[in-house]
Computed example of a mutant assay.
Amino acid sequence: MIHLIATGGTIAGEADPESGGARYRAGVRPVGALLAAVPGLDAFDLSAEQVLSLDSKDMTPDGWLTILAAVRRALGDPATDGVVILHGTDTLEETAYFLQLTVPGGKPVVLTGAMRPADHPQADGPANLLAAVRLAASPEAHGKGVLVVMNATAHAARHLVKARTTGLDAFESAIDWTDARPDGRFADLAADALPRVDILPGYAGAPAGLLDACVAEGARGLVLALTGHGSVPSAWLPALRRAREKGVVIVRASRCAGPVIRNANANDDAEGWLTVGSLPPPKARIALMLALACDGPFTAD
């Protein structure tokens, strides 16, 4: 049996009549209606549940925990052979990576979504959903970690990125999904909330006061999405040192494609900073949140 977990997203969206077709509302259609619109699904033994109904731009860490709880319930059922999660594309790569770190390898977990709403005359959701179910049901998907299917292409969660704002080919990944491996380093996560970690972008004239504001609001970690090879603005140094004195974990990343190498372009050892390797800032944030929640090491991988 393949268990489907619906969270909303464009795949469940409908045109907004007030916009004259210029906009749509995500997360409108329930999972039963989505399944009924997909020819070929009757060949599979399926179960389904609706755990969220939102536009994925509004996904939160609490939402991740809700999805994780549903995944754990499904995978714990001996009758479940795999899980498919329907999700909006805006934060699809973040949820996929969160699950990559918190779900042990074994049974397939596959996410999918859509770039066009469900009532679009050429909606891509039905084909993506069918492809995701097929992948979750295939022996080849076992032991590959969390996967994502979009536009007839499978991706590994660790390497997935939404590279374009529009188009059915909006997603890319650096490796073939068949080379993917499970992670699950935080599979024992028992927290009912995740610590706050903020991402701060580096740009010309970026004010250091943003760092102080995040710390004042309760951030336990800061991921710096810096320019170039993780270049820290000189004006930020006093604020970063104040944050470290308060126990805030600082991670040096880049807004460019990585890697950010430790002690290259900055004295990370002297400042007590961590570095991300090739991990992009949104995924580095997730890894740091989980490391703080589990009192474990932050690993850039």
Rank of each mutant, 00 (worst) to 15 (best):
A152F: 10
G82P: 04
L92S: 08
S234K: 15
L226E: 06
R196W: 08
P104M: 01
G218W: 03
G209Q: 15
L99S: 07
G9Q: 09
A174Q: 09
I286G: 03
P126C: 07
G88K: 09
D42K: 04
A132R: 06
L160R: 03
G209D: 15
A180M: 07
G113N: 00
G145L: 00
L4T: 10
P61Y: 11
D77S: 14
G32Y: 01
G167W: 04
A37Y: 00
S234V: 15
A36E: 12
A204D: 00
L75G: 06
D16V: 03
V223I: 15
L35I: 15
V133Y: 06
G113K: 06
A239L: 01
Y24L: 02
D269A: 12
L68W: 00
L147S: 02
D295F: 08
L211P: 10
A137P: 05
A219M: 01
H3L: 01
T66R: 09
R262N: 14
S19F: 04
E94K: 05
W236I: 08
G20K: 03
D176N: 11
A33E: 15
H3R: 15
G167K: 06
A12M: 02
R185C: 09
A154P: 08
R72E: 10
L160S: 02
H229E: 14
V149R: 12
G221C: 10
S19I: 04
L52H: 00
C256W: 12
A136C: 11
G221Q: 08
P117N: 11
G202W: 14
A291W: 03
D62G: 12
W64Y: 14
S278C: 14
G230N: 01
V223K: 06
P117R: 08
D192S: 14
G13T: 09
D119G: 11
A37T: 01
R252T: 02
R164V: 08
G272K: 08
R72W: 05
G202A: 13
L189A: 12
R23W: 09
A193T: 13
V83P: 04
D268T: 02
F98P: 07
L279F: 02
P139A: 12
A174V: 04
R158G: 06
P297R: 06
A270V: 12
G228C: 02
A48P: 11
A284N: 12
A206F: 13
C214I: 02
G106M: 01
L224D: 11
V232S: 00
A163P: 01
P259V: 14
H155N: 05
P17V: 02
A70Y: 14
V31Q: 11
A187Y: 04
G82Y: 01
A206N: 13
